[in-house]
Nucleic acid binder design. Structure first.
Length: 403
RNA sequence: GUGAGAUUAGCUCAGCUGGUUAGAGCACUAGUUUGUGGCACUGGGGGUCGCGAGUUCGAAUCUCGUAUCUCACCCCA
């Protein structure tokens, strides 16, 4: 038997119901915020991710499904969604067009990781990207949008907030931090020693207790922000407070992708194990320029759909549509014909075997139909159909042409 | 990539220290006297015990390998 590859799941039945319900809810809310759908390819040039996500990140360094295609192009399956959207934005020359452009997307992402609950090799994200708006109000809108989506799905969360600074204040801070960590470089863990060279900011969210003990006294980025960043961060906090959105400042919150600056946020759930980040995002004002576009401020977020699945509170299912069956074999052809017509407007389940009424009612109940309709010898003779509403238990006999 | 635990019917799980035809509940299916559902009762179908080796007279059970899942690390959504 051939089974699916490791970390790659089929989505069907109940899971599929949840999945599509999530997409419907999230899409509806994104549209309310003025975002439009964008679809980008699953396969992109490898260089796109190297330049955007950053070669120092694990995602690009060791988790990409990368290969040379038949045209000798170095390509890979997308490990995240932002880079492709930014590429499309630039390629369609929207950076030259000016104005504000807001997109949402959803689809499969690929990372060659060791699978766990809430961590798959092929997984799905719902994300939004906003281009051309530098105001921190847009950052707040992003956070509110995620909040709205999670609320609509009945999902509880904690919101973590941080500011990563910009080109004015981040480089100096990074130097400070490296200087600080270097003083303790014999005491910190191996991973942190490595991070010092690859991505120093990442030492901050090291989970090693010994390291955290040391970093308690490390300089905090939030105290080193330049006036512009600091001002924006204050405004953001005020907007969230004004809109009753609870948040916690996490000075150790670092986004894993290199392109983030200023606002960084993460929504976490305490109910799904160690892969607790259910949504994350922030501002990335430098990325468009990085990818050869005209400098354009941008902000976005992504939601990990699989991590949300079991947290979604589904609306109660209601009976829907018709079940149509035959009481005698002779009525089967008529049942099929009637059902075909009814399907122009309704959901219809047909049973291809003739049964007694009792069994048809049972079967109708099983498929959660709202109406059970049957045709027997009486009905055939009178050109009628017998119909029962399974909710209020009322019955009627209709002329076939009126059904 | 590192460490740990699991894998028996469609699902959730029993199966003690190796011993005849591997069980239960749910689900599925058929009936319970002929045109009234969700309940109940009675039958029925369904398992190469993840896969592959080894030990043994004999392996679901012990050993090794392998795959997958789960948990933690790592990483991140």
């Amino acid at each position: 038997m051939i089974s699916s590859l490791r970390g790659m799941n089929d989505i069907l039945s109940d899971e599929y119901k949840r999945f599509t319900y999530f997409i419907e809810v999230a899409t509806e809310i994104a549209k309310r915020y003025g975002f439009h759908f964008i679809e980008t390819p699953l396969l992109e040039e490898t260089a796109l991710f190297k330049r955007s996500v950053g070669e120092s990140s694990d995602i690009v360094g060791k988790e990409m499904y990368q290969f040379i295609d038949k045209g000798e192009n170095d390509v890979c399956l997308r490990p995240e969604g932002t880079a492709g959207v930014v590429r499309a934005f630039i390629q369609k020359k929207l950076d030259r067009a000016g104005g504000i452009h807001r997109f949402f997307y959803h689809g499969a992402m690929f990372r060659y990781e060791r699978p766990q609950k809430g961590r798959l090799r092929q997984f799905h994200q719902f994300g939004v990207e906003s281009f051309g708006e530098a105001s921190v109000y847009e950052d707040a809108n992003m956070i509110m949008m995620v909040g709205d989506i999670l609320k609509a799905l009945g999902i509880g969360y904690r919101l973590k907030l941080n500011s990563l600074g910009d080109n004015n204040c981040m480089p100096a801070y990074r130097e400070n931090l490296v200087y600080f960590v270097n003083k303790y470089k014999d005491s910190v863990c191996e991973d942190c020693t490595r991070r010092l060279y690859t991505n120093p900011i990442r030492v901050l969210d090291c989970k090693n207790e010994k390291c955290q003990d040391i970093y308690k006294d490390a300089p905090k980025l939030i105290n080193c922000l330049c006036s512009s960043c600091n001002n924006d961060f204050d405004i953001l906090k005020k907007i969230l407070a004004d809109n009753n959105i609870a948040y916690e400042i996490d000075t150790n919150l670092v986004r894993g992708l290199d392109y983030y600056s200023k606002t960084a946020f993460e929504f976490v759930s305490d109910n799904i194990g160690s892969q607790s980040a259910i949504a994350g995002g922030g501002r990335y004002d430098r990325l468009v320029e990085f990818l050869d576009g005209k400098a354009t401020p941008a902000v976005g977020f992504a939601i990990g759909i699989e991590r949300l699945m079991e947290l979604i509170v589904m609306p109660t299912e209601t009976r829907i549509g018709y079940y149509i069956g035959a009481l005698e074999d002779e009525a089967l052809n008529l049942v099929v014909k009637v059902a075909h017509k009814k399907r122009e407007s309704d959901v219809v389940t047909i049973d291809y075997k003739s049964k007694n009424l009792k069994n048809h009612l049972k079967a109708a109940d099983k498929v959660n139909a709202k109406y059970c309709a049957v045709i027997g010898s009486n009905e055939m003779q009178n050109e009628t159909i017998w119909l029962k509403n399974l909710e209020d238990k009322t019955e009627q006999v209709l002329l076939l042409k009126e059904f």
